[in-house]
Amino acid sequence: MKVEIKDVKYIAKLSKLSFTEPEFQTLIGEFESILSHFESIDNFDLSDINLDLNADDLKPVLREDKVKCFEDKKKLLQNVKSMRGTAIIVPKIIE
């Protein structure tokens, strides 16, 4: 699949990353390589694979929840940029 620079710039904008022009050219090659790999996977014949073979034997693995009190809250919240009371304020990321 052919990847164009506008596609890579759009992905970079969505992920809020900035690249130089040579880096964009490198990313184009990498994206094309990844997509060609997916195309080769898409060509596998999986018609003879039975996905329900062991479905009856599968059971969810659960662990018991244990409540732990973290004593040093100052250390826990040392990297928080801003708080309101006991709530952590995070920047809005939805456009």
Results as ranks from 00 to 15, higher is better:
K74S: 10
E71I: 06
S36L: 08
P22C: 02
H37P: 00
V8H: 07
F31R: 13
I88V: 15
V80K: 00
R84V: 10
K92Q: 11
K6D: 13
F44N: 08
Q78F: 14
L46R: 12
E64N: 04
L77E: 07
Y10S: 14
S36A: 15
L14D: 03
F24D: 09
K75P: 00
N50A: 02
S40A: 15
F38Y: 13
I41K: 06
S36C: 06
K75Q: 07
N43Y: 05
P60A: 05
K9I: 06
V80R: 07
L62D: 05
I41E: 09
C69N: 09
K75E: 10
I88G: 02
E64P: 00
L27Q: 05
K68W: 04
V67T: 13
L76F: 11
N50S: 10
F70E: 11
E23N: 06
Q78V: 11
N79K: 14
G29R: 02
I94T: 07
K6Q: 12
T86E: 12
K68E: 07
L76N: 00
M83I: 11
K2C: 03
E30M: 13
K6S: 13
S82N: 03
K59G: 08
S82W: 03
L53A: 14
K66G: 00
I11V: 15
E95V: 04
V90N: 04
D56G: 01
K74R: 11
N50F: 00
S33V: 05
V8M: 09
V8G: 05
S82A: 09
V3A: 09
T86A: 15
N54P: 01
K59E: 12
Q25T: 13
K13T: 05
A12D: 08
T86S: 13
I11C: 04
I34N: 15
A12R: 02
A12P: 00
L46T: 13
V3H: 01
I88T: 04
S15A: 15
R63H: 06
P22H: 06
G29A: 11
D7K: 13
L77D: 02
